[in-house]
Computed example of a mutant assay.
Amino acid sequence: MLRTTILTTTALAIAAPAFAAEVNVYSYRQPELIAPLVSGFEEASGHTVNIVYIDKGITERLQAEGGRSPADLIFTVDISRLSEAKDAGVTQAVESEVLSTNIPDAMRDDDGHWFGLTTRARIVYASKERVGEDEVTTYEDLADPKWEGRICTRSGTHVYTIGLISAMIEHNGVEETREWLEGVKSNLAKAPEGNDRAQVKSIWAGECDISIGNTYYMGAMLADPEQQEWANAVRIEFPEFKDGSGTHVNISGVAMTAGAPNRDTALEFMEYLSSPEAQEIYAEVVNEYPVAVGAEPSELVASWGSFTPDDTDLTAIASHRAEALKLVEEVDFDAGPGN
């Protein structure tokens, strides 16, 4: 059963017929990460934003609700989930000069079905004690035997991992990516398990020397007294693809539902989310990078270093997600080294 938490409204209210000055959102992002944006928009517009937090299955829920759905927008993370929603027919195209101006081409759907709000880089966490600075320079390098028994990562089937593998396919083709994935598997210190923070804990514990993770987890660990020691044991390295295209980034984004009952108010909220002001608020709360032109990352995020983001069209990368999952299964990645 889906777990939901409702903010700024009651279960009865969001299920009731919509009003003109309301917008209803289904969100994968946790309530505390959305609250500052909701407050900012409500204060600026006078409208009411109703948020339903759903930890999984937004697309399936929208399909089940069909034309009865109260949802106007979905907030989600990862290009795969945004593409999945579009492919399932639960989103609609949006035309907006504001969105087109504020959000770069590579960070929005060619057909206008979804728009990126923030980005995160898929980077390497490296032990300060056991890994030299700039020792990790490319993603392809992770398959080098020098890392044998030294890499930790989460499941190969997780959307974050699938996103990176999909990007590898886009840059290097399926067969070279298969070889790379086999090499990374051989270099694992243990079978994939846990989340990105668990991998950093393993580095701190001496179980491995490097791990693959998203940048924003550094901010999350530094904010948690129990995890600060893990964070302080590592530094962030920004590998690039060997063709020089830059560091892999993924997005959090927003899309309008196919049957949005409050379309005009929903569009107004989307445009607000793309504004430099809202972008900086959101990016600071989630420890990510804003996508809007002119918006700056927080001081903490900027302190992790600069990098060149891969500007490959995210739609092209997402198109390989089925191939990426197939490769993970074919090489039995999650079985770990020696299997």
Rank of each mutant, 00 (worst) to 15 (best):
R197H: 05
A198D: 15
A198N: 14
V200D: 07
V200L: 12
K201Y: 00
K201D: 00
K201F: 00
I203C: 10
I203V: 14
W204Y: 15
W204C: 09
W204D: 12
A205D: 10
A205N: 09
G206C: 02
E207G: 06
C208P: 04
C208Y: 04
C208M: 03
D209K: 11
D209A: 12
D209M: 06
D209G: 06
S211C: 14
I212N: 09
I212E: 09
G213H: 06
N214T: 00
T215P: 01
Y216H: 13
Y216L: 03
Y216N: 12
Y217R: 02
G219K: 06
G219L: 06
A220P: 00
M221V: 08
L222I: 09
A223H: 08
A223K: 14
D224R: 00
D224F: 01
D224L: 00
P225K: 12
E226V: 13
Q228Y: 07
Q228V: 14
Q228K: 15
E229R: 14
E229L: 09
E229P: 05
W230F: 15
A231W: 10
A231K: 06
A231H: 08
N232I: 01
N232T: 05
N232M: 09
A233E: 05
V234C: 05
V234N: 04
R235V: 08
I236Y: 02
E237L: 08
F238C: 01
F238R: 05
F238A: 01
F238P: 04
E240C: 09
E240R: 14
F241Y: 13
K242Y: 09
K242M: 13
K242W: 08
D243V: 07
D243F: 08
G244H: 07
G244P: 06
S245E: 11
S245L: 10
G246A: 02
G246Q: 03
T247S: 15
